[in-house]
Nucleic acid binder design. Structure first.
Lengths: 238, 238
DNA sequence: ACTTGATGTGTGGTATACCATATACAAATG
DNA sequence: CATTTGTATATGGTATACCACACATCAAGT
């Protein structure tokens, strides 16, 4: 191990573009875009000034964010943070269900007994979060649970696409996971999923994951009529 | 209908960036990136000169293409067209199966009888292509068939993500759909899928779509050992 | 009062200049 | 001859200047 081995990662693959991209991405995901009074417009020059860089890397980062669907760029009008409609959110959940149910199917085939056992232990351990009404904690565990299934599928693309959907729904999730009876149901669902995985029942695991996620879908469909009223960037297209 | 309705789309939402993006995208998808001798490097200045624009829109378009996974940008090294490994291609097929099987499930619920009947007619009509050994024609019909299922799901996100995967596999598909016995099997599969859709059997339709697509997966897994040898952009990361 | 047009300002789109690094090659050194 | 080091050049990264358009404001005319 020479000294160069330790130093090489420094400044490797760094650029203001990618740095700006990460920064803006995090900032956008962090903001509560569904509050009616937030300003969705992003001013390139102000962003450039705030970040202490020129407009060029800002614009390149924004182009990437637009490709990812986080912002919407209208030529000669401006760039706006994308506020998702209720229908778009529902579609994201459906697509997520599609990806994760396939992941579960693959996991029955690719995951080791040890990995599944570890997942089971983890789920049991955090099931008490719900009893203690520690929903914050459980929400995190819940995310880890689902990410683990994607991971155990062995298909990186499935995980990557699901992760993208996940981050898009981050602002939404803060509100979705609400009442403790939904959490309680969630715990039961998770145990059912794990059982199916451990018994290597691909069809059952796949089905249970799908139905579990679709319950979230139905819940959002029923309880979220208000986002609709806020409108989205589409209103700008006259 | 006033005259302004007809004229409004002119120059609406046009920018050299988006134009360049489309152009480069089409060009990349059109090139046969798996020939060992092709140059995967894209020179910004040469591209700018060829397209008669400055580097700025080129770079913004390239940033978007990188986000989509079509090219890989290495800081201060260059931008290279992404050559997919066999494993990545297989993962794309798996993910595609996940998306389309969910689409089929939804289609049993959302598609009208008329739409399914039209799909059936279309499939029957083009089943003769295989008999006539017109695989070119059948390949196109095959694509339309699958796109229609995505369409009938009523979930635009499913279709959009599947379409993205589709275009990524375009260069691959030219080689995959080969022997006529695979095409014949494909016809039978399609009819089975349509039957399941018409009888509104969600589980069956979903399963048949998945198994149909996974047959392509297994076929690629068996017959494509050579792409592996070509290497990819990853070789550039020393 | 309403419409229409001129004008000014702000913002995004594009071009270009300049900087830093990677790379190749040449020259120097042992 | 091998190794190293300087240097030239090409190329990507960044900053900046400038342009065109959108929009607001206001003035003039009807």
């Amino acid at each position: 191990m020479s000294i160069s081995d330790k130093l090489s990662p420094i400044a490797e693959n760094f650029s203001l573009k990618s740095h700006t991209f990460e920064l803006l991405r995090a900032a956008i995901l962090d903001m509560d875009i569904y509050r009616p009074d937030v300003d969705l417009r992003l001013d390139e020059r102000k962003l450039a000034e705030k970040l202490g860089v020129s407009r060029t890397p800002i614009r390149e980062a924004l182009a990437q964010l637009a490709q990812e669907g986080l912002v919407h760029i209208v030529a000669r009008k401006g760039v706006f943070v994308c506020r998702k409609t209720r229908e778009e959110i529902l579609e994201m959940v459906v697509t997520w269900a599609a990806l994760e149910s396939m992941a579960a199917r693959l996991a029955t085939q690719n995951a080791s007994d040890a990995e599944l056992q570890a997942l089971r232990d983890f789920a049991i351990e955090h099931s008490s979060d719900v009893e203690r009404a520690d929903l914050e904690e459980y929400s995190d565990a819940n995310i880890v649970f689902h990410q683990t299934i994607l991971e155990l599928s062995g298909c990186q693309l499935l995980k990557k696409m699901a992760d993208t959907l996940f981050t898009h729904m981050q602002a939404v999730r803060r509100r979705a996971m609400g009442e403790s009876d939904r959490a309680r149901r969630s715990v039961a669902d998770h145990m059912g999923i794990i059982d199916a995985l451990i018994t290597r029942d691909a069809d059952l695991a796949s089905r249970r994951v799908r139905e579990h996620t679709m319950r979230l879908h139905d819940h959002i469909a029923k309880t979220w009529s208000r986002i609709e009223a806020l409108g989205s960037w589409r209103d700008l297209a006259s």
